[in-house]
């Protein structure tokens, strides 16, 4: 009996311990990034290159996906609303869904798979080819020089990308609702504007995407830095970045939503 318990504990214990150790390392790493951040903010050009890498290169996928998501939302929403004679609320439906949820969440998921995985691969390869060790031997701290700029580049890019996603989605909704289905343009926009609150809906969406930006960027740089310095190690880390990011984004979204829209 005792043996069975011991066996069980050691079975669960090992991965659990490993997970906790990893989480602890990630926390320590986060603090190290913050401590070494002044360099990336003072020498902003370093961060600039990472905004280009994480942000600019993600614009295309974000904009195109946003447009399609908005168009689908409008088509589906119209089908439902028209049964209740409420088709003039289509703009409200599209805008609220995008600004509150889909913009930040889907934007972050796309960001994680486009930019997060690229950041992990880049840092992981730098580690595997001893570039980070070389930097250390040149008395340059890789966390300050390589990791922190990538982290901040991601953190800065994410809210902008999420806003672009929402804006494009609403535009897509407008194309379908007004141009294709022939809703009245004036009431489409004015109802939307009356129902969407800047502080409660738009700003909370931006705050959400800022949280997601921190989470995804941290996971991406951490997985890259922690990757085993081999080809399989790096490819495994890239996958882990996307999977972990997706889970964390959705869990975090639940917590933030419960917190922000409680009692409304």
């Amino acid at each position: 009996m005792v043996n069975v318990l011991v066996n069980l504990f050691s079975r669960i214990g090992a991965p659990l311990t490993r997970g906790i150790v990893k989480l602890g390392f990630a926390c320590r790493f986060f603090i190290a990034i913050l401590r070494h951040s002044p360099v990336s903010l003072v020498r902003f050009r370093l961060t600039m290159r990472e905004i280009w890498f994480a942000g600019v290169l993600s614009v295309l996928i974000i904009v195109v996906s946003g447009l399609f998501v908005g168009m689908v939302l409008a088509l589906q929403g119209y089908e439902t609303l028209v049964r209740f004679g409420a088709s003039s609320s289509l703009g409200v439906l599209v805008a609220l869904s995008l600004v509150r949820e889909l913009g930040p969440v889907v934007g972050a998921l796309l960001f994680a798979s486009r930019a997060g995985s690229a950041i992990t691969a880049e840092i992981g390869l730098m580690k595997a080819t001893e570039q980070l060790a070389a930097m250390e031997m040149m008395a340059v701290n890789p966390v300050a020089r390589v990791v922190a700029p990538r982290f901040w580049g991601g953190v800065i890019s994410m809210p902008l990308l999420a806003a672009m996603f929402s804006a494009m989605g609403i535009f897509g909704g407008y194309l379908i609702g007004v141009q294709l289905l022939g809703l009245d343009e004036g009431s489409f926009w004015s109802q939307m504007q009356a129902a969407v609150d800047f502080r409660l809906d738009v700003m909370n969406g931006v705050i959400k995407s800022a949280f997601f930006g921190v989470a995804v960027s941290l996971i991406a740089v951490f997985e890259g830095y922690d990757a085993p310095p081999t080809a399989e190690g790096v490819s495994g880390a890239t996958t882990r970045t996307v999977v972990t990011s997706a889970l964390v984004i959705l869990a975090l979204d639940f917590v933030l939503t419960a917190f922000m829209f409680r009692g409304v």
């Binding site: 614009v59 805008a95 600004v99 809210p159 902008l160 990308l161 806003a163 672009m164 929402s166 804006a167 494009m168 609403i170 926009w189 939307m192 504007q193 009356a194 969407v196 609150d197 800047f198 502080r199 809906d201 738009v202 931006v206």
Partner: peptide, 16 residues
Amino acid sequence: AGAAALLFLALKVSSQ
């Protein structure tokens, strides 16, 4: 572009 998107959300999509 990011600022324009935010401005669009602030001025055209929502109200205070």
